[in-house]
Write a protein that binds this DNA or RNA. Sequence first.
DNA 1: ATTGAAAGAATGTCAGACAATCCTGTTGAC
DNA 2: GTCAACAGGATTGTCTGACATTCTTTCAAT
Lengths: 223, 223
Amino acid sequence: MPPDLNLRISPRTVQQETVGKLRLAILSGLFQPGSRLIESQLCAQLGISRPSLREALRSLEAERLIEIVPNRGPSIPALSWEVATAIYEVRELLEVEAAGRCASRISPEQLGELERSLSAFEEAASSNDSIAQVMTAADFYSIILANCGNPILEEVHRGLVARISFFRGRSMSLEGRAQSSLAEMREIFESIAAGDEKAARKASKQHVLRAKAAAKISMDSDI
Amino acid sequence: MPPDLNLRISPRTVQQETVGKLRLAILSGLFQPGSRLIESQLCAQLGISRPSLREALRSLEAERLIEIVPNRGPSIPALSWEVATAIYEVRELLEVEAAGRCASRISPEQLGELERSLSAFEEAASSNDSIAQVMTAADFYSIILANCGNPILEEVHRGLVARISFFRGRSMSLEGRAQSSLAEMREIFESIAAGDEKAARKASKQHVLRAKAAAKISMDSDI
DNA sequence: ATTGAAAGAATGTCAGACAATCCTGTTGAC
DNA sequence: GTCAACAGGATTGTCTGACATTCTTTCAAT
């Protein structure tokens, strides 16, 4: 009998599956901020039992992707600009550090990956598919964070970025934002490719600051 | 009838209560790293049902205070030195930033609080109560983080510090560590009190680096 | 001692139930 | 007409009990 290549891959439980589905739904903006999630509805839609759903909701609550108020149940938090600012500031701190470290330690293979993801974003940027833009941009950062040599930096960053995903889609739709974003990312890439830690830090900082500014504009522009 | 002073305090649910109790138990080192938690036992000890317990466990899992492997259940993660290092590095990033911001924005009242917490640590440091030392030191950082003007910085920092609580108790017990820690903290306080942002950053960085070194020693000294 | 199989323990998941709480629309008083 | 009390339904918090699946451990056989 051929050896079972399925080497101890943890089986995906209903709970994990559910967290994944809900997280994706939230990140893609399927739910309106402030809107409530009804347990019975979700159970029916997902075809799972209430205990399983509630476990998944607790996980998402701890990730701050939903809020659960006793006796009122889960809802999508309305992100205030104040909190968003705070997140962008910490994101800057982490991302700058990651880019700097990345510049002096990334492997050639991973650098190739990074270049490829930049190309993917370039293609998305020239289209009008803001979802693709957000996704490919996220890939780009992921690679940087994955190669900074600090798994915690990566983990915390992922958690924060998830919480501002709401803005990311909107600001990407801003006139010209995708193109300027591309230029900024290219500069980050060039710095990392050149192994220039200082330049990578600077470019990364610039990028986050501009992203934050774009988010602010997109937030003020409507409502 | 006297007005009900219980002004819309969210009722504490069984789940919240349980998370609080378990978190405290974990942080005080009641469970051995690597040891498994048996649902039925915890249910019996806490006097709650399995669904409630499991919800609480999912919250703690998302906080990374426990691990849950499918079909094996929850356990206390064994913190590798590699991960601990990564946590200390990110903690440094956050704490340095917080101390710097704090120096230029803390209010006189809060500065008084900070001084008081330093005194409390001073007292604990001269005793041999390492639990009191860890707690009062934690108060000191909390005040700094709470006054840095960025709630996310505070939130992330709290989460990280919780994960290395295991080391904090041990390294505080090291010969002379409490006293040198006190000196470092005093320097941070003086810098903040003087409103010297740069000095606060430097002192804070120094402190985290020393704490990390102490943790390494305490880890190597026994197995 | 190593291997293998069977018994026991623990988890993953579900269904159903009920009390406490919240929300909503209606009624009634001013 | 506006506001307040209220009744009813909807929703959540929590428990009990159950069962299949998956470890884990014990014990026997080689």
